[in-house]
Nucleic acid binder design. Structure first.
Lengths: 194, 194
DNA sequence: GCATCTTCCGCACGATCGTTCGGCTCGTCA
DNA sequence: TGACGAGCCGAACGATCGTGCGGAAGATGC
């Protein structure tokens, strides 16, 4: 990895950390350059526009999410335990780095602003929903979930539960946010069980 | 109502409409002044800071929400029908004005930025949760819901379902967002019924 | 009908935004 | 050793941000 790519990774890590807290449009090149102790122009040279930087941050966050949440879930046994591993890693990744989720904030920031960033957010979420639905489908074929259950509806509902978690945890600082989330997931799974 | 208060209301209505789409921090005095065809300084005079403007927008949105969603629900018969009226009005108010919800976006924008705006958002959400929990409690005393059900958990879960709706509707433009939401609410109510 | 007070404007301020440009400092290779 | 390209910087750009000031209009009270 050349020196350019190295600092690029450093910048992206710092940018993702800022975007987790301030949001993707609140992320400014000045503050980011200040954070990594570089000049604005030196940093800017690595990306050729702010939009490209934002897209790079999204790609970075996506890879982090897949590594920390999706892959451990896929490594877990099929069916309910896989879904529970997914939620467990998802909650853990939000708790350990004391920050929100870039995607959750970016989704509300860009849902009314057409462009490549919005398009990417839509693609990412579609992929996530498809991953969850697929986990649910293997749970059906394993005989753990009811065959007449709707995998897409399950994915939608599970994501709603996670949105509720982020809200309770980040805004309300609810000390029982994790507990409430697990109770909601329990109910979702109980309704899906055979 | 004097002339000052009149234009103030006009400004607030336009500001709320903008904040619904762009968010509360994306709402800028320049664009707002341009929208209502006033000068920046003329508009600025009605509020004495941007933060005061944002708080006023939140108050305006809160009153609108109470009028359009909470009050119709309270006017409905106790128990499950009241909860369903709440959801119905909530969905309707988001569908008719083709826009998002100020609170949903503001919650993720300000969840990491301490100050009076965040404090107000926390208060507003606490009030909303208390209203929903209270509706659920009267449902229990009416004998419609299980006495051992947790009203606060129900409020939390219902809000998660609504967050899922906003996400599916605004970002994903899911044509079945309303359908998915009702199925999720049905499941929530089915689990709560006696 | 005049004095007063509110409402609103034009103008300007310092700060910060994203972005461009020219040049300096290196490591790399011929 | 000398040319070269990559990486980074300082300075500056036009635009826009939130915010003040001084003064016109217009409404209001006597």
């Amino acid at each position: 990895m050349g020196k350019g790519e190295l600092t690029r990774q450093t910048v992206l890590a710092a940018a993702a950390a800022i975007a987790d807290r301030i949001g993707l449009s609140g992320l400014t090149i000045g503050t980011l350059a200040n954070q990594v102790e570089m000049s604005k122009s030196g940093l800017f040279g690595h990306f050729r526009s702010k939009e490209a930087l934002q897209l790079a941050v999204l790609a970075y966050a996506r890879e982090s999410f897949v590594d920390a949440v999706i892959r451990p879930a896929i490594a877990a046994p099929r069916g309910e335990r896989r879904v529970r591993t997914l939620v467990d890693r998802w909650l853990a990744v939000c708790l350990e780095r004391q920050a929100g989720c870039v995607f959750v904030s970016a989704d509300t920031e860009f849902d009314d602003q057409p462009g490549p960033i919005r398009d990417q957010l839509v693609r990412d979420h579609r992929d996530l929903m498809e991953s969850i639905a697929q986990m649910f489908r293997t749970g059906i074929s394993e005989g753990e979930f009811r065959p007449d259950a709707d995998p897409e509806q399950f994915a939608h509902d599970l994501y709603g539960v996670m949105l509720g978690f982020f809200h309770a945890h980040r805004l309300m600082r609810d000390p029982d946010a994790v507990g409430r989330t697990w109770r909601a997931v329990d109910a979702l799974l109980a309704n899906a069980r055979i």
